[in-house]
């Protein structure tokens, strides 16, 4: 006898809020980010990924909410009725772009993402056979280069200008972010690739430390 008897019982409740001046609807508890995406508004994001818990660490998806002192990560913040959100205000965009810029400023010269648009690997030459091989004990056999790890098709692909840092390059080019020389000059000392495991290699120099 628990079956729903009216349509209202199975229809999720929605609330209305404004995003960049446009009134949109969100389901109860839905985040600003997801509601925006359902309405065709793509808020920049890096550490958010469908299927994973949103952590709100990268801070690229920050938006301005009226009445709040600081910006809020749209991937974690639920929309509430009447909330006035600005995802493309000058203040929000400034932070979004700065986060992309400081992340990019620490990246190495070459990323690891295959660039299908250019139909070649980001490496100048494919590794010679045997290079980068790892013995069963875990020592690198012959190569000082870390293994290139082609990533599965991700969001950075096929959306215009995929880049060598995957999604980071994608959003940087979409938002017209380039690294200024002053910050480029402060590039961090790159962490070494961890190739201690026979089956996995970790290239921490391209990690954005999303903490996922």
């Amino acid at each position: 006898m628990n079956a729903p008897v009216t349509l209202a019982e199975v229809t999720p409740q929605t609330i209305a809020f404004t995003l960049d001046g446009r009134s949109i609807h969100a389901y109860d508890g839905e985040t600003i980010f997801k509601a925006a995406r359902r309405h065709g508004i793509d808020i920049p994001h890096l550490c958010y990924k469908d299927g994973y818990r949103a952590d709100g660490n990268c801070r690229v998806c920050v938006v301005e909410i009226k009445g709040e002192r600081t910006l809020a990560p749209s991937c974690c913040r639920s929309a509430t009725a009447g909330m006035e959100v600005q995802a493309s205000s000058e203040r929000a965009v400034k932070s979004q772009k700065m986060v992309l810029e400081i992340l990019l400023s620490d990246m190495g010269d070459v990323g690891y993402k295959w660039n299908d648009a250019g139909s070649q690997s980001p490496y100048p030459n494919p590794l010679p056979k045997g290079e980068g091989k790892i013995s069963h004990r875990g020592e690198a056999v012959a190569s000082s280069l870390p293994l290139p790890l082609p990533l599965p098709l991700g969001e950075g692909r096929g959306e215009g200008s995929p880049g060598q840092y995957g999604t980071l390059s994608h959003w940087a080019s979409r938002m017209n972010v380039t690294v200024r020389p002053e910050l480029r000059a402060l590039r961090r000392d790159q962490p070494k690739a961890d190739i201690s495991h026979p089956a996995m290699a970790v290239n921490l120099d391209t990690c954005i430390q999303c903490n996922l």
């Binding site: 801070r59 910006l71 203040r91 400034k94 992340l103 910050l183």
Partner: peptide, 30 residues
Amino acid sequence: VGTAKAARLMQAERWDNVTLEDLNQVMVDA
């Protein structure tokens, strides 16, 4: 990243106030 970059910039004899202010803003806001 912001605190690390700012600490480096603040060691210059003459501060790069434009970049520092951009870092300030993203740290305060985000």
